[in-house]
Write a protein that binds this DNA or RNA. Sequence first.
RNA 1: CGGAGUGUAGCGCAGUCUGGUAGCGCACCUGGUUUGGGACCAGGGGGUCGAAGGUUCGAGUCCUUUCACUCCGACCA
Length: 509
Amino acid sequence: MRFSKLLIPTTKETPNDATLPSHIYLIKGGFIQSVGGSGLYNFLPLGKKILDKVRAVVKDELDKAGCQEVSLSFVTPAAFWEESGRLEKYGKELLRFKDRKSNDFILGPTHEEMMVNLVRQTVKSYKQLPLNLYQINLKFRDEIRPRFGLMRGREFLMKDGYSFHASTEDMLREFALMEETYKKIFTRLGLEFRVVEADSGAIGGSGSKEFMVLADSGEDTIVVCDDCEYGANIEAAIAQPRIYDTHTELKTIVKKALYDDGKSICVGFVLPVDTELQDVKACNAVDANDLAECDTEDKLAMVVIEEALGAAVDPSQFDVQEMIYADISSVQEGDSCTVCGGKLRYTKGIEAGHIFQLGTQYSKPLGANFLDENGKAQPMVMGTYGIGVSRLLAAIIEQNHDDKGCIWTKESAPFALQIIVSNIKDDEQVALGENLYEAMLAHGMDVLLDDRKDRFGAKMKDYELLGVPHAVVIGKNLTDGMVEFVTRKGMQTEEVSVENITDFLKKRL
RNA sequence: CGGAGUGUAGCGCAGUCUGGUAGCGCACCUGGUUUGGGACCAGGGGGUCGAAGGUUCGAGUCCUUUCACUCCGACCA
């Protein structure tokens, strides 16, 4: 492509609301454009191209693993969500609206219901299982506070996959296959990531793992072990219990646990003073939908004691109907790993993928049954697998940038090579640029030729901002028969003679 | 939803206190000069000042209402 023909509106100025490198550079580089509404973005040609490349990697690996792509209707009849019980539970992130006939619809934030519906209509026998269907489509979540550009938009591109099995064993096999497949995807995209144990959240289910792209700007705190592979989201992390005795100072944190139909109870969480209450663990311990601050001095209906305290706490001191022990405190840095005993530490990650063992949580209420070998109806056992595709663009930049701009990884780069003609008035430079451009195109390389009338400085700034992995600068040294080969990462340059440059490029790229 | 703030040209902002012809930088258009680190000169186009109502001879500016967005805290790929 020729730069002069492309819509790449790069800017010198930084948008004032952008704080993350990915947000700043994606806007400045003209990859995306804010739509003005919060959390909504247009993808401009370059951004769309990268999105397609990332999407292609995801699709390629999934298809190789035997998954099948479908495309579900974006607008979803609310009836499906009533059936699964999530219409109530999902909350305000779910965008609801009516059509002209006053029928209720939602914009899908995730598509378990739709996919189960698709399958229950078409799959009746164990002979048709297992099945792994996915789509790479727009999702909409009416986020309370969208921010960070593509990182947390309201509309976003997500790959969501769903697998259906005749047995739990087979689902676990597929779950492991998807973990391996996801590793291949993230590796191909050039990302440094960690697979961690996670809480299942609103999607539900038993086991779940998150794929965390490691970056300081990540919104999630993850606990990792330096000595082994153990990693977990702080929400789900476990450590070897600390030792406490009866002298341990305790604190009680009171929260209101919220349940379906607006029910709530006041719960006291008892833990050592030097530890933190982990809200998600606490929420799970009392099987609640959510925890809120207790506004009144309600009587405690329940007490949950950190299980590590064990005999160190005297249960008779609490005057309540119900008392349980559970792991409710946050793992702290320096705690010991349950796998190998090594020291645990915190790091930050961007959640880019999440895989769940769903079981029959959706197939049962939605009646997705199959007939087994004995002709008996059974609910299908399900897994669900997500990748935030548009978020990956942001994650790639969070992990690969410098103070000048983006540095795209090989598989995500908008172009493999950028040819920069530094003085467009110099006929010799222009001629070489054109020749090289044609030669590389003929060689099947995706090349960007910067043939604009701008000066050298402006072109280099744009090159650095756009972050194409390599460039050839045709400039002053052409009088000595030399051009420069530039590697964006580190901005290293190598002098190459004009005679050799074509072969050089073929070899290096 | 709680707290803080901002709405003026495509983007970034000044002007609001103290009412009196709507401005600056970037970007854009025309002509010329320039070409190794976001050039320069000259000329030019572009605005219901977020919206509605009010006060006033006169409102971007004062008053009332409203909407939107941003930032800090609780949800999520």
